[in-house]
Amino acid sequence: MYPLKYHKPAALADAIAALGAGEEAKVLAGGQTLLATMKQHLAAPTDLVDIRGLSLSGISAAGGDVTVGATTTHAEVAASGEVHPAVAVLAAGIGDPLVRNMGTIGGSIANNDPAADYPAAVLGMGATVVTNTREIAADDYFGGLFTTALEEGEIITAVRFPNVERAGYAKFKQPASRFCLVGVFVAKTADGARVAVTGAGEDGVFRHEGLEAALSANWSPEAVEAVTVSPDGLMSDIHGDAEYRANLIKVMARRAVAVS
């Protein structure tokens, strides 16, 4: 690893200041993505601002919403009785137990890996990303690959999940990395069905209108059958081509509804 300066502020204002002061300063949360990329010299920040001293961890329920602090680990969400069971199941399937003991929800959605799990839950549930300066609706938050609405120096403090009538998640793992070859999160809300697909899109996580329309009309695994999922805009790589992923989207959508 290249030399760097480590900061562990105890207050959000100090973290923001440290991010502004460093030549190329970055937030450090669980480090399960950032340190891995730094070891391979794919990133070389001059300063790391560790946000695990800011008391941003923990899960709380209020008025039907469940708020998950940014530095809450995947293991903590997996073990939580407060988050929707579909979100707990999703967290329990991220990577491996060691990654889950360190990796955080904030880090996952800040990174927005196109094959990551959490973006599907956040977009599928229609959650709100809370930062030090504002609240961002999931529909406005996710950009393309590894891109989000976050500004330079903006820190995610929490993710707020609304109450939904039903929700389910199904993931087809890429067997070596355990990231998603395709993951589909479905949620039945008062305003109709939401279906978020991860692992498949060339521009990262996305909502599928056809599946949403079919499931809004009839919330059942069978309703998925009649939907056409086009391979246009889906990724092709050594693990699977776009047609294969298009088919997997339907299979995972069916399974996600079945477990909801």
């Binding site: 480590y6 562990k8 480090g31 399960q32 790391l48 560790d50 060691l98 360190m102």
Partner: peptide, 10 residues
């Protein structure tokens, strides 16, 4: 945890 993916100072 994976000790290769945590900073000692942290």
């Amino acid at each position: 945890v994976k000790s290769c993916s945590a900073l000692a100072v942290a």
